[in-house]
Nucleic acid binder design. Structure first.
Lengths: 223, 223
DNA sequence: TAGATTGTTAATCGATTAACAATC
DNA sequence: TAGATTGTTAATCGATTAACAATC
């Protein structure tokens, strides 16, 4: 019987913590040593009590009247997410987005590194993308097991996503970072984080549409 | 005084609608003509009443005892988001992710097309990426105004994001699709949709970490 | 000390879930 | 008709916001 961990952390908090991190990093570079929630809230457009709660999840305590020490806070968030140690990941689908993720080194700061790429197109297999070799898809499951890789990235076309996910799961992968706009079914114990860019884009354009419509209504109202 | 539109649509609904769309497209390809919320719910792991509410926002009505007509539903979602007409967008930052977005043609289905790219690196300016010319950043604001472009995509490094956003806003851009892991401040009436990939990745690895920890605790418990 | 800030408890708000009448 | 499904209203749940005591 699988139950929720006693101290489950709200998802919105999990999403905000990296924002604080980026922001605080900027403050540190400017030489700032201490910061209050009021101050953070003004810059990030969030309520101070919420920030306090969020930060408390990382185990840190602020100093009344003073605020939080920027450097301590940064360390606290780093440790909370485990960014000091590095997770190795396999990527499947060496297309546009796949290659971009491989080339982008920035995720190493977040304890994440792509160590191999897989594809089933003979034109791509065997080539190298930024020192990472592209291997045939058939080797995926075995290599997952052999190298004990626990995170997989899916950057394949839509229709291949589920099949690739199944191969990953067979290889013991527990976390899937999915960029394909497809539903992925996984057994309990395997987590999927989908970056549905089309959804993000659609939200943006819909909000824009609504804003313009309400603007027009307003214009008519003021006639 | 700006007020919310009378019929504001919940953000979770906005995020789920494109999921329904993808899923229904798959059903249509399989030749399915009618589908019930119970059925959708099973495949997408959602509660049927929630699906009904979500779909109702697009203005569609189902048929009791029967369900929804797949094709009608698809059209309804397309129209809701305005995917039949195309928004033109400018992209700034022709790095890895920027180039991937330009090369990826798939967003045209969602009424979105990148018509020009901008960068300030002399090595890239003047080149073409998939028929799209890379222009010098200095031309951004004027071209926005001249071409009446309303959507901007930011794929620059962190530190340049705010400056680029300001140039876009000066050019009359109303919606910013941001891929830089940075805070962007905008005046009222300008919408930002941030795709914070680092945040998604961090959430995934944290959940994985929590899952493994709770698993270990359980093992100890059963001793 | 007075003021600012933290940390926490209570109230509010919004979305999800449950219940159920209406309907082809 | 009976069963399945929709659409809607009410109950629940969780996160945000407000209020306030504790503290350097």
């Amino acid at each position: 019987m699988i139950t929720k961990p006693e101290f489950s952390i709200p998802e919105p908090t999990l999403k905000r913590l990296p924002r604080y991190y980026n922001y605080l990093k900027g403050l540190l570079n400017k030489g700032r040593e201490v910061v209050s929630c009021t101050h953070i809230g003004k810059d990030l457009d969030l309520d101070p009590p919420q920030i306090r709660k969020d930060l408390a999840y990382t185990g840190i305590r602020g100093i009344p009247k003073v605020g939080y020490q920027v450097e301590v806070l940064l360390n606290s968030i780093e440790e909370f997410f485990g960014w000091n140690s590095c997770d190795e990941a396999f990527l499947v689908g060496a297309g546009n987005i796949g290659r971009a993720l491989i080339n982008y080194q920035g995720f190493q700061r977040y304890g994440f590194r792509i160590v191999a790429a897989f594809d089933n197109s003979p034109e791509i297999v065997g080539k190298r993308i930024d020192k990472i070799e592209v291997l045939p898809l058939a080797k995926l499951t075995n290599l997952c097991l052999r190298m004990n890789v626990k995170i997989g990235v899916i950057t394949t076309p839509d229709h291949a996503a589920q099949e690739v996910a199944d191969m990953m799961i067979a290889g013991g992968i527990k976390g899937i970072w999915n960029f394909a706009p497809a539903e992925i079914k996984t057994p309990e114990g395997v987590i999927v984080q989908s970056e549905n860019l089309a959804a993000g884009l659609s939200m943006l354009s819909k909000k824009l549409q609504m804003l313009q419509k309400s603007g027009k209504i307003r214009q008519e109202d003021t006639k």
